[in-house]
């Protein structure tokens, strides 16, 4: 009971802080940088979600742009229709609508994850990679072919509900949720499957079940991030959800460290801001963004195969412990 009260209090503080941050950010940053912060939040949600399956479970999804697209189009289309029907909502209703949109987006993306996951996760090896690759392309193809949602022209006129506060809150929730998940017994099972599937099975872990659950949760988080994205700019372009986007997500978690939540967060933020920083340094550098990314990816895999952080986590207490080890030796 007390734990629940503390958590509720924490949530209230978080919401308050996020709204405060949103106001502060509006004052400090121009809209361009504000949008980058919002995008970074969305990317953090996706990276943390993708990290569950690619990092902790050791299965490889290369179709997360597909789940992102499902979430984005589901919430985007639904809430646009809702607004056309009932008119511009009040502030409270707007919050409820966005939460509802995210929930529906997560459920649909999760259902799609189940559909792809069950046949391919029964098998060992790279079949998930193969299936998700095909899945992502099918989703994009379907979107392009359905005229009711704009087809190749994209879907426009979506109500804009997302702001920096939302992105920060959802990102914080995603981090909190995923941290709890991976430190639970289920999280241990995930890591066991990654390290040795046969041994995990031998100690009584239902490996298929663990993998499917991790994959569906991952898809749901990505779907919710899709809803946030749909209401960010108010328009969706099917070209956003190409195969290269899935690879960009993979680069995020690989740069940070596969199997590290702080690594995923770090990677997501860095890769969102990097093109802008490159542009600041020199305009042509940002044109070479993808060349730099890909070279970076290869170098990281060659030099540090587990990413910059590996599966270590960064936290204040770990930082203090590290400082103690480093500088406290003489006095101890």
């Amino acid at each position: 009971m007390r734990g629940a009260a503390i958590k509720l209090g924490f949530l209230v503080v978080l919401v308050g802080a996020a709204i405060g941050i949103d106001f502060a950010l509006r004052e400090i940053f121009n809209p361009h940088w504000l949008r980058l912060i919002e995008l970074a939040g969305i990317h953090v949600v996706i990276a943390v979600g993708l990290n569950l399956i690619n990092g902790y479970c050791g299965q490889f999804s290369i179709g997360h742009a597909g789940f992102w697209a499902i979430g984005a189009y589901a919430s985007g289309v639904l809430l646009t229709v809702a607004e056309q029907k009932w008119g511009t909502p009040s502030a409270v209703v707007e919050i409820l609508l966005l939460v509802g949109g995210m929930a529906i987006a997560a459920i649909l993306a999760g259902a799609a994850g189940l559909l792809v996951g069950i046949p391919s996760l029964r098998l060992r090896g790279d079949y998930l990679a193969i299936a998700t690759l095909g899945f992502g392309e099918i989703i994009r193809n379907v979107i392009v072919n359905v005229d009711a949602i704009g087809g190749p022209r994209g879907y426009h006129g979506i109500p804009v509900y997302t702001n920096a506060a939302w992105c920060i809150i959802v990102a914080a929730l995603a981090i909190w949720f995923s941290r709890n998940l991976v430190t639970s017994s289920f999280g241990r099972a995930l890591v066991a499957v990654r390290e040795d599937e046969v041994a995990a099975e031998a100690v009584g872990i239902n490996t298929t079940r663990v993998k499917v659950i991790a994959f569906v949760v991952s898809a749901m988080m990505t779907g919710a991030a899709g809803a946030l994205y749909a209401h960010l700019d108010g328009s969706l372009d099917p070209d956003t959800f190409k195969f290269t986007k899935s690879i960009e997500f993979i680069i995020m978690i690989t740069v940070g460290g596969l199997g590290s939540i702080t690594g995923a967060v770090f990677g997501a933020i860095v890769l969102t801001l990097l093109p802008e920083l490159l542009r600041e340094i020199h305009p042509t550098l940002s044109e070479y963004r993808m060349v730099i990314y890909s070279a970076l990816l290869i170098v990281i895999v060659l030099v540090r195969p587990k990413g910059l952080l590996g599966n270590r986590e960064l936290s204040p207490s770990a930082g203090i412990a590290w400082l103690r080890r480093k500088f406290g030796k003489g006095t101890a």
Partner: peptide
């Protein structure tokens, strides 16, 4: 990367693909 995990190899292959496309 021959002795590294297959995941690393797969990521390296993806990186190589992107490097060739954008390079």
């Amino acid at each position: 990367l021959r002795s590294a995990s297959r995941l690393s190899l797969l990521i390296a292959a993806m990186g190589m693909s992107l490097l060739l496309e954008y390079g």
